[in-house]
Design a protein around this nucleic acid. Structure first.
Length: 300
RNA sequence: GCGCAGGUGACAGAGCGGUCAAUUGUAUCAGACUGUAAAUCUGACGCCUAUCGGCUACGGAGGUUCGAAUCCUCCCCUGCGCA
């Protein structure tokens, strides 16, 4: 085994599992810098609702890809991958270890495993024109444009269908799925918690976030206190805290309903995250900070 | 205790003579994932069976009917109104 081969560490797991703390701990041990892999923490001003790590919690460890875009602008996996790759190279050039930490599987797949994203930018006009089409209609359109992709795509998913049509109209067809993985040795660590404990952590964390002013944070986003107002639609699309708190602010839910529904959604989300990570057989699962030392040593 | 409204699968809540193991939502379980990914989407969900199919079910007990979750009788229970 090559001694000096650059290595990266990837810490994954469902929301509220304690990834961020663990990543900081690892960073301290291996002289690392952290790259967040979270599709919501990239936005400025979305802190409490996303559970973004605080300066204090960072404990001196540099963190990247947090607060890189304003919430009224859009972001994408593709941009994430480009930014992340650049930063990883810089960290390695500095002789340090990149630690990717987050719960957005798709982003990690692009950044680390190298899922190649077709170079077709979102076409707002096209998307708008398909807004009112039924799923069946979209499916038919795709079938005509790109039979091959049509055969494998989820026929019921309008969002995917639109994207596939978008790619096909711009470059003829959807290219085959391919990967350009990072050329570094990768250590995958997953943080797992048993279902009841995770639920409990989610519950406690939600109440604490509300107490710290999460509702105000979201109200400010919509009121434009950060520069430009973020539309209700956009907040709804951010999901979870942003979706349910904004529905409460709009008077669509009572505070109690908001909390109950939101908590359920967070739990469901954590299950979806688990489903995603489960298929990556390289991940070594641990349920607390103990034993992390062994994993780091045995794989170095 | 008289009046009215009800009792349906884990819960909510449709169905009101056959096409009902029973619409739908929630919960639960499993899954997908090519520039929105905390988004978006799929499947299973009474019991037995690989499948065909079989069995038990709509508060309880009877009854009418070729056939009842659906109609009738009595009983039990719940909510609201009047006492």
């Amino acid at each position: 085994m090559l001694e000096k081969e650059p290595k990266i560490v990837v810490v994954v797991g469902p929301t509220a599992s304690g990834k961020s703390d663990l990543a900081v701990l690892i960073a301290k041990k291996v002289n690392g810098e952290i790259l967040s892999a979270d599709s919501r923490q990239v936005y400025c001003g979305m802190n409490l609702g996303t559970g973004k790590i605080t300066k204090k919690e960072m404990n001196g460890v540099p963190h990247h890809i947090l607060d890189v875009v304003n919430p009224w602008n859009s972001f994408s996996v593709s941009r994430y991958k480009k930014m992340g790759r650049k930063i990883i190279n810089e960290i390695i050039a500095r002789g340090k270890t990149p630690i990717v930490c987050g719960g957005t599987g798709h982003y990690i797949e692009a950044l680390v495993e190298g899922l190649v994203i077709p170079e077709v930018k979102p076409d707002k006009k096209l998307r708008k024109s398909f807004e009112n089409k039924t799923t069946e209609e979209l499916s038919k359109i795709l079938k005509k444009l790109d039979k091959k992709r049509w055969e494998t795509i989820d026929q019921h998913n309008p969002r995917r269908l639109v994207r596939a049509i978008e790619i096909a109209t711009h470059i003829g067809s959807v290219p085959q799925k391919q990967y350009d993985p990072l050329p570094y040795k990768t250590l995958w660590i997953g943080v797992s918690k048993d279902a009841d404990e995770l639920k409990n952590r989610i519950h406690i964390r939600l109440l604490s976030r509300i107490k710290k002013g999460m509702i105000k944070e979201i109200e400010n986003l919509h009121n434009g206190k950060l520069g430009k107002p973020v539309s209700w639609k956009k907040l709804d699309d951010f999901g979870l805290e942003y979706r349910y708190v904004s529905r409460y602010l709009r008077g669509l839910l009572t505070k109690e309903e908001m909390i109950i529904q939101l908590e359920k959604e967070i739990i469901n989300f954590s299950k979806r995250q688990n489903t995603w990570f489960k298929r990556n057989k390289s991940i070594q699962w641990i349920n607390n900070k103990n034993g992390i030392e062994e994993i780091l040593n045995s794989n170095s």
